[in-house]
C-alpha cells in the first residue's frame, strides 16, 4: 500500500515540478550551480572508475581466451561491447546513484528539516520547481559524462592490453572497430537519458518528502540509493528488452 502511495506521490511530484516556474534569471543560476555540483563534480570519479574498470575487463577477457583459434582482436571487441552497452551507462549510473543521489537527497532533506523549504513556500515559490527542476535539467548533461566514461573505459582497456602484453595495439584497435553497430551507442544514450531522469528525481523525492531530523536525512539517503539502483536495474532490463531484444 505504501509502495503504491509512493509511486503515485512520485508522479504527482513530477507534474508539480513543472508548475509555477521560477524566474528565469534565478533558475539559470540554479541550473549552472547544479551542473557544477552534479556533472562537473562527478567527472573525476567517472573518469577514474571507467579507466580502471575498462582495464580490468580487458585483462579478464584476455585471460579467459586461451584458445589459440580465437583471434587476438577479440579482446578489444569484447571491451568495447561491455563498456558501451553495460558498463558505462548502467554500472556507472549505479555508482552515481550513490554519489549524486545521496548528495541530492541529503541536500534537499536538510532543507526540509531546517524549514528552508517552508521558507521558499512562504515566499510563494514553488519549491519543487525551485529545487528539483534545475537538478533534472543539469542531469540532462549526464550522457556527456557517460560518453567520457565510454571513451576512457576503452582507453583504459587499451592501456592494460598493451602494457600488460595481452595483445598488440594494432589488434586492440582492430578489435574496437570490428562489427561496430552505431545503434548500440544510441541504445546506450537512450538508457543514459532515462537513468539521468531517475537519478535526479528519485533522490529528490526521498529528500523532499522526508520528515524528522539529521538521523532521518541519513536514512532517507540510504533508502533513496536503494530505490534509485533498483529502478535503474529494472529499467535497464525493460529498455534492453525493448530496444535490443
Amino acid at each position: 500500500m505504501t509502495y503504491l502511495h509512493n509511486i503515485g506521490a512520485y508522479f504527482l511530484m513530477i507534474a508539480e515540478m513543472f508548475r509555477k516556474p521560477t524566474k528565469w534569471s534565478v533558475m539559470r543560476q540554479l541550473i549552472l550551480k547544479d551542473i557544477d555540483d552534479l556533472i562537473i563534480g562527478s567527472l573525476g570519479i567517472i573518469a577514474f572508475i571507467s579507466f580502471f574498470v575498462g582495464g580490468v575487463i580487458t585483462i579478464q577477457t584476455a585471460l579467459n581466451i586461451d584458445n589459440p583459434l580465437i583471434p587476438k582482436y577479440l579482446v578489444g571487441f569484447a571491451t568495447r561491447q561491455s563498456v558501451i552497452l553495460e558498463f558505462a551507462p548502467t554500472f556507472t549510473s549505479i555508482i552515481m546513484a550513490g554519489k549524486v543521489g545521496s548528495f541530492i537527497t541529503s541536500s534537499i532533506g536538510t532543507m526540509r528539516v531546517t524549514e528552508q523549504i517552508d521558507a521558499l513556500e512562504v515566499m510563494g515559490i514553488n519549491s519543487l520547481n525551485y529545487l528539483v527542476f534545475p537538478k533534472t535539467i543539469a542531469l540532462m548533461l549526464y550522457p556527456f559524462a557517460i560518453a567520457v566514461g565510454m571513451f576512457l573505459g576503452i582507453l583504459g582497456g587499451m592501456a592494460a592490453c598493451v602494457f600488460g602484453g595481452y595483445s598488440t595495439l594494432a589488434d586492440y584497435i582492430l578489435g574496437i572497430q570490428t562489427d561496430f553497430d552505431s545503434f548500440h551507442v544510441i541504445y546506450a544514450f537512450i538508457k543514459t537519458f532515462v537513468f539521468a531522469f531517475v537519478l535526479a528525481t528519485i533522490p529528490s523525492f526521498y529528500g523532499y518528502y522526508m520528515r524528522g531530523g539529521a538521523l532521518e536525512v541519513g536514512k532517507a539517503s540510504t533508502t533513496a540509493f536503494v530505490w534509485t539502483s533498483v529502478v535503474i536495474i529494472l529499467l535497464n532490463y525493460v529498455i534492453t528488452g525493448m530496444l535490443l531484444g
Binding site: 524549514e115 521558507a119 510563494g124
Partner: peptide, 20 residues
C-alpha cells in the same frame, strides 16, 4: 495569494537561512 505572500515575512524556529 501571491501578492499577499509578498506582504508576509516569516522567521523560522531554526532561522531557515539558505545555507548555499
Amino acid at each position: 495569494k501571491r501578492d499577499l505572500r509578498a506582504e508576509i515575512g516569516m522567521v523560522f524556529q531554526g532561522s531557515a537561512l539558505f545555507d548555499s
